[in-house]
Design a protein around this nucleic acid. Structure first.
Lengths: 339, 339
DNA sequence: CTGTTAGCGCTTTCAG
DNA sequence: CTGAAAGCGCTAACAG
């Protein structure tokens, strides 16, 4: 027997006034007598009245809810971006509803579809690694549904975007390796569908070029994911080379950790014989032995900024704002796995 | 200029029929002619009609949304529970809205309050470490809002609950240490407000007792969190003891990783001189050197089961179901940090 | 098979 | 200052 929650009409009846009066009392409307207002507020509290946001949303055609779509939530990277989003958005009375695409294009499409039906006020999206076709995002922009893309780019879609300067981070990392004396710098690259992976790759190549080191195809292997186990095989391949590398720049910390594991297992010394550097600054990374050098990314800030962009769009839905692209700077963190 | 989305009335007008006819056509109602149905469906598709769930929700007084409240999202533990929840619930057309309490009682209260206003169909809650008073949960049960508690218990609240058998896991871990020859097993305990931490502590003590080892207060220190840095000071304290332990059972993998770091830094060999064991089986744990022995918890399964319980309650809101408490079994994972 | 009506809970004109 | 009425988009009961 579900006791239905108190409504405005109920309060009105009990007080012998009209619902509109109650509404006015509860919403600090000026045209209301102190006396009735007081009575209404008192009874509302007593009955534990809570406005039905469903009704309000329908009326206002606004849900105060934003949809966040990420490839996955278990990585430190995305969960801390989400932290930033939540901290930005909650004080504004806005809720977020999160879903994971699990790096699947189909799932991503479905999520966007459901979120649209739910009538979220806007989207914050980091596309899956499978996503090459942006029709599902185009539908959003065509329907004037605010959308901000973060971390991973969708070229051709014109919306606000927030990125980290991956190129710069990779460049710094590789230059650091070169400057500490490494001659044969390998790269465990990420899936090249991802803009982030491509930019890091380019940073790697350009850093080598700047220092007149030819790019050696043999020293470039691709991992198929971001977890430590995805670093295993690529590293084995590199170590099996006739002239193995003396440094590895891994696409991220997860893969770098897998790489370090293989290297240590092989009895090779880090950083004396091989330097290793990752990307992300996962909180675990400083506790390995040696501690992992890496590139810190402003993940939390990215979340905050992306959310800020989105809220601005939502609150200015009929003004014409030019699109903003913000690129945040990463920072090199030198620790024990490089010299 | 925001082009408002297609409504059922719009379709009705364009086709010269009534809204109810359109509704019927779109909902596979039996009482409808093939011809009109076809026409409606066609036009709906053409206009890219999407039902307004807001209206539907108001009508049905049901949102098909569940609220998930966790202490934090950045740990592997909770994010993989969330994975389980999402995978259980999405195929049912149910969405989840997540919020983090950041281990704060106040935030937890606020979240529950907002989620209630949003009219989520039910709650999945793992309380914060600060939460000692359960009034905010009582309000939910008093109002017949379905609620399932998972991982961390709230004693006195009668609802469906899903736990891991922490006692058993801790017992297994400590017994394993004893059986591999450790004589002075220390425990880095978690905050004792948490049922999970208390149960692990008890498992620790009982395992010692079973093997006739007296519980030595000196070997018990409390950490104030679950990250590697929270393992640092407790471990230093233990190592500084006149007769330091030869084994450490840490409250979780994070803390154990911090402990291993300190131990290795001190030049002490793991596991020869000190064994270390954690709890959680964080994906990073097997990549440390030595790899961390730990207790695996069925996190994903916990999420699935908790979600299943909740959905059952939601779909049976006016039947009387007795409360279910399920306790899942953890598994000892022996790796390199213990003998 | 189809249209009319009412109503989910709330706010907002428009009249008093 | 307050009440009546309309309507957000949709479905369901009731007529035809």
């Amino acid at each position: 027997m579900k006791k239905s929650r108190t409504t405005i009409t109920e309060i009105a009846n009990q007080l012998g006034v009209s619902p509109s009066t109650v509404s006015r009392a509860l919403n600090d409307h000026p045209a209301i007598s102190k006396k009735t207002k007081k009575a209404v507020v008192k009874l509302a509290r007593k009955l534990n009245y809570q406005p039905n946001l469903l009704a309000l949303n329908l009326l206002k055609n606004k849900t105060n809810t934003i949809g966040v779509v990420v490839p996955e939530i278990t990585s430190y990277f995305f969960s801390s971006v989400i932290n930033g989003i939540q901290d930005m958005v909650n004080p504004l009375g806005v809720n977020m509803i999160i879903s994971q695409s699990n790096e699947s294009y189909e799932e991503e499409k479905n999520i966007i579809q459901t979120f649209t039906s739910i009538r979220v006020d806007g989207f914050l999206i980091s596309p899956s690694s499978e996503t090459k076709n942006f029709g599902h995002l185009k539908i959003l922009t065509d329907n004037n549904i605010p959308l901000v893309i973060f971390d991973r780019d969708c070229e051709g879609i014109e919306v606000d975007k927030v990125f980290v300067d991956e190129y710069n981070g990779a460049f710094q990392a590789v230059e650091h390796l070169i400057q500490t004396g490494c001659k044969r710098v390998a790269h465990i690259a990420g899936q090249q569908t991802l803009s982030t992976a491509r930019h890091r790759f380019k940073g790697y190549k350009d850093a080598l070029s700047k220092h007149n080191i030819p790019v050696n195809e043999k020293y470039i292997v691709e991992s198929c994911g971001f977890a430590p186990e995805h670093g295993i095989d690529p590293t084995k391949k590199l170590l099996a080379l006739p002239n193995p590398p003396d440094a590895i720049f891994a696409i991220n910390d997860g893969v770098a950790i897998g790489a370090m594991y293989v290297i240590k297992e092989a009895g090779i010394k880090i950083p004396e014989e091989i330097s290793v550097i990752g990307f992300d600054d996962d909180p675990h990374s400083s506790f390995f032995k040696p501690s992992l050098s890496t590139v810190w990314q402003p993940t939390y800030e990215m979340g905050v900024l992306a959310a800020r962009f989105l809220m601005k769009r939502i609150n200015a839905s009929n003004e014409i704002l030019s699109f903003r692209i913000e690129t945040l700077l990463p920072e090199l963190v030198v620790r024990g796995s490089s010299r």
